[in-house]
């Protein structure tokens, strides 16, 4: 874990526009941000662009970071997520939302997911339509509430729930296909 005192020194330096501190911040958090951006942006180069853009915003607004309100990781992840969401907005195609009657977490065989590499995990997420992928990432991994997602994406809370349900359903279907392929390979 990164030493918090060290981080505070880096942030203080960044507030003073110290290039060394800015470089240190980039070294510390580029990988963290890249992991976030890769979940939202399928293309790795585009994801790096998002990291770059996020870092520009982070460095530009670093004086606004208040350590009393939370860890710096939370703050910069919020900026990265918003950066990615804005990028995805440009690609989004207007569609009619489908409201599912179903809701709630369905028990799921997690074994297959544990066996997947991180790249395969990314690939799974990116097989989702953008609007589902956004909500899935935001709610499931980044911990946003449906209300927060609604505010961020400009959609109704109900739409966020619907999209999450659809995302999960589609992922289950994808995982089932993977499972079948795995069993076929083992049988063969």
């Amino acid at each position: 874990m990164i030493n918090q005192k060290h981080i505070q020194e880096i942030i203080s330096g960044c507030v003073k526009n110290n290039p060394a501190s800015q470089r240190a911040l980039v070294r510390e958090y580029s990988g963290f941000l890249y992991a976030i951006c890769r979940r939202y942006i399928k293309d790795t180069e585009s994801a790096k662009d998002m990291v770059q853009e996020s870092l520009i915003r982070i460095l530009a607004k670093i004086q606004m970071y208040d350590a009393r309100k939370g860890k710096v990781e939370s703050w910069i992840s919020t900026i990265a997520i918003r950066t990615c969401i804005n990028a995805l907005k440009k690609k989004r195609i207007t569609t009619v939302d489908v409201d599912e009657v179903h809701s709630g977490e369905v028990q799921f065989d997690a074994g297959i997911l544990q066996q997947l590499t991180m790249q395969e995990m990314y690939d799974l997420i990116h097989q989702l339509p953008i609007k589902y992928k956004e909500v899935f990432n935001l709610h499931v991994i980044d911990g946003y509430s449906h209300q927060e997602i609604g505010d961020l994406l400009g959609v109704e809370t109900a739409s966020s729930r619907t999209r999450l349900f659809r995302a999960k359903a589609m992922l289950r279907e994808k995982i089932e296909i993977i499972k079948k392929q795995e069993s076929c390979v083992k049988t063969a």
Binding site: G31, F32, Y34, A35, R38, R39, E105, V106, Q107, F108, A110, L113, Q114, L116, M118, M121, I125, F136, H139, V140, I141, K168, L171, R172, I175
Partner: peptide, 16 residues
């Protein structure tokens, strides 16, 4: 396990 919690476990704290 829940699908969501499994994804969260895999990605939580992950650094690329």
């Amino acid at each position: 396990n829940g699908l969501g919690s499994t994804f969260k476990d895999r990605f939580d704290g992950h650094v690329e």
